[in-house]
Design a protein around this nucleic acid. Sequence first.
RNA 1: GCAGGGGUACCCGAGUGGACAAAGGGGGUGGACUCAAGAUCCUCUGGCGUAGGCCUUCAAGGGUUCGAAUCCCUUCCCCUGCACCA
Length: 951
Amino acid sequence: MIDSNIESKWQKKWQDAKLFQSNPDNREKVFLTVAYPYPSGAMHVGHGRTYTVPDVYARFKRMQGYNVLFPMGWHVTGAPVIGIAKRIGRSDPWTLDIYQNVHKVPLNELKKFTDPHYIVKYFSDEYRNVMMKLGYSIDWRREFTTIDPHYQKFITWQFEKLNEKGLVRKGAHPVKYCPDDENPVGDHDLLEGEGVAINELILVKFKIGENYLVAATFRPETLFGATNIWLNPNEEYVKVKINDEEWIISKKAYYNLLNQKSNLELVGEIDTPSLIGQHAENPVTREKHIILPASFVDPDYATGVVYSVPAHAPADYIALADLKKDTETLNKYDIKDSVEKIQPIGLISLKGFGNHPAAEMIEKMSIKDQNDPDLKAATNEMYKLEHAKGVMGKHIPDYAGLKVPQARDEIKSYLLETDKGDIMHEFAEKPVICRCGTECVVKILDNQWFLKYSDEEWTQKTLNCLENMNTVPGEIRSNFEYYLNWLHDWACARRIGLGTPLPWDPQWLIEPLSDSTIYMSYYAIAPYLKDIDPEQMDEEFLDHVFLDKKTSKTNIPQGMKEEFNYWYPLDWRLSAKDLVGNHLSFHLFHHSAIYPQEKWPQGVVVFGMGLMEGQKMSSSKGNIVLLEDAIKIHGADVVRLFLMSSAEPWQDFDWREKEVIGTKKRLEWFIGFAEMVDELHGSQIKLNDYNQAPDANKSINAWIISQVNQRVQDVTRALEGFQTRKALQDALFLFKKDIDHYLHRVDHELKEENAKEEINQVLAYVLGIWIRLMAPFTPHTCEELWNRHGGQGFASDAPWPEHDLDLIDEKVQKSEEIIQGLVEDIREIKKITKSQPEKIHIYLAPEWKWKVFEIAHQVGKPDIGRIMGQAIKENIHNDKKELAGFAQKIAREMARMHYVGFVDEKRLLDDALDFVARDANAEIIVYQEPTYDPKNKARNALPYKPALFIE
RNA sequence: GCAGGGGUACCCGAGUGGACAAAGGGGGUGGACUCAAGAUCCUCUGGCGUAGGCCUUCAAGGGUUCGAAUCCCUUCCCCUGCACCA
């Protein structure tokens, strides 16, 4: 039923009609962009959602009469494809497997993937192809890649602006670094160690002879409790020269430090055992500490030298205990007497613990020795507790009474200022391994360029920008506020990758997040650039176009500047949730820095993630569904429909094959309905003849017209807020349910000519509205139906239906509820009594009960006194006792009831009598007055709820 | 740790003070159609009930209110992000 030829047919017609090529005119505009893809892999259904949301919104707004621009480009800046090309080049099996089997690249193409440019070309072609197959209403004339020379000139201009405004600075920066690739690596480049943080450690120089034994610590405040120094006697230690000092550290530490310190020089090897038993001087307390052996010391972590604080560090405490028992070692190094004398020195007071918390922690967690796997947990726990609640002891000079974090900062400053300490960086966890298999190191990059997002003035300006902006969903706003304030300076340049050179320091390339902040502006000028030499796009040129500055240039194309001013500011920016803290925030920063306020972004929409059958979707794990396959199996409209209906854009959606098929059935039903309308009509209808709602004589016809108008209102409202799921809930699922119900209700009337004529009119009206409501979601199907049923022009261009408030009638809706309530009541009574009645007597509520309802409604509260008072005053019923009983009974109900006024139930039931009789399979007799009432049921009758007697 | 979002029936998921035993979908049940299967349509899908009703439920406990899935407090649990980068 769903035919891919139909889809390609309409795609071609749209293209031929240039339907989605948007040019400035006198209409109101809507400009929306979605983050352009980085084409390093095939497009899966997760991407499908990302790009379908703006398409649906664009189509919706277009039908409402706006001039809508929805463009697309390719973000090819960055390093990942370089790595991929390299790995393909050396036939890395993992990479080959992913590209062959997950991205489904044919072998002859894969061979060419050693060229990173080819990779992005290949996948951007594929993306474009899939986007076209999905029927996106993109203005393809504006397409570009981020390494086009024209675009590079635009980026150059942007960075010159930022630099002129003093928003760029130079500095040093620690990064994860692969020594083999000679490049920083991001988390996605890692085989192991994803998300591992880089920590800063303080180096403390313990003087030993003319040299320094350099220990590393997170907790310099504990220097006052140091009792000894630990080395691992089985490891190699070396002497290195740094500036004019000589340090003793482990050999592995030396190699790590090479990446962090310049002018580091290996001077000589050390005989490690000879150090044991010697003493080194604490730079703060001037005490001499003995150097002792410990197996827990990892030579690859930090400097391989640790100073020991047994009172507060569980590892030190247990290592000391181990050593005291180890007579062999004590004798070997002749340190027995010294070790025995060592006692923990408490220096931090901690609520709930005594003088030596580490000892208690060891006890509590039953740590056996220094090789116990739980030792790490004990250390962490201790660290957290003392960090959060510890206070420096009274006997500690200068720092007494300070909280631990504060003391730590002050001691750190003291050590650094007096040159008694230094800093190094280390991974929080090891190993960290690059995809190429090499173990990564922490490297300090000098001469790095930073965007100064920490700049207060700039942040404030950007917060202003946020304040005047819409965020969808609304809750995401506080995230933005948080991130804008939190953002540190951003290292904006790289050594490796594709991209634009930094104009004033061209050995650096502008990094991908930094070159995609204001590029939405570029879409406005993109169609003008074909015949322009990029060299002409200098600062004066672009200042004129984007900032309205005067120019004497004569080679700037006519209309370029005007076009930018027409489309800008950007109305909506759409992007994924995880980009709130970088891309989306950067885009606000850069707009606020470069453009005047009237050009600042107007809104953002944030996306959730995609799941597949409940599992996280991920190319590297292979559990993705390629869009191309999904389109092939289900058709573009079904894919679109499922993606839009299964979750709101900002929620995570779950691709479940079973539910996709369910969606497909629903769409087929819609198509079948259209056919059925024609069939009932007896000949092809012309939708244009049915733009007005027909006059309804029967209440059920008024009901469906009311429902349809209600749905139109709800769908429109939902789409305005990008709630595609809610919109479809109304436009498809509930709409279908209404029609199901309607058809069920009128089924028996289709044989009567008179009734049928009205039904036909109603159905034609409904169909015309329905096709248009669905057009943004399933454009191909809707074009086809629109065309088949004599709609004018393209459905994509047809006017969006507007709801008529006069037709949304609460009484009509209530009336149908009354009928349904009645049918359900009959069913229930039949079920309970397990009987099949022959006659059903229906008693309507007398007039006085309606009056009591009216009074109760006006009173508005369950205030029986007032209701009674008013009722007696109006003299609505003679039997005061019955009146009181009734008032009491309904007082409570009223709060729950949706009272919409008097409904002529007699007329209503006459209308629906056939239906009720058929459903109940019995004769129905309606009584306004209870002339026959053997079981005295009539007194139960309420407005909206007639009484029943079945026999 | 910090920040944000959550816990609703067999599953997914609406619902932010009364119309709620709780939308919609999926799954299941029974029925109609059919030689049959499939598709389609209808019913039911917390418990009890020979008259349209009653009882128990929205992570757990406590509170506010005439009235709580919804508001407040406490506890437990889950998810996402925390950067050198798509």
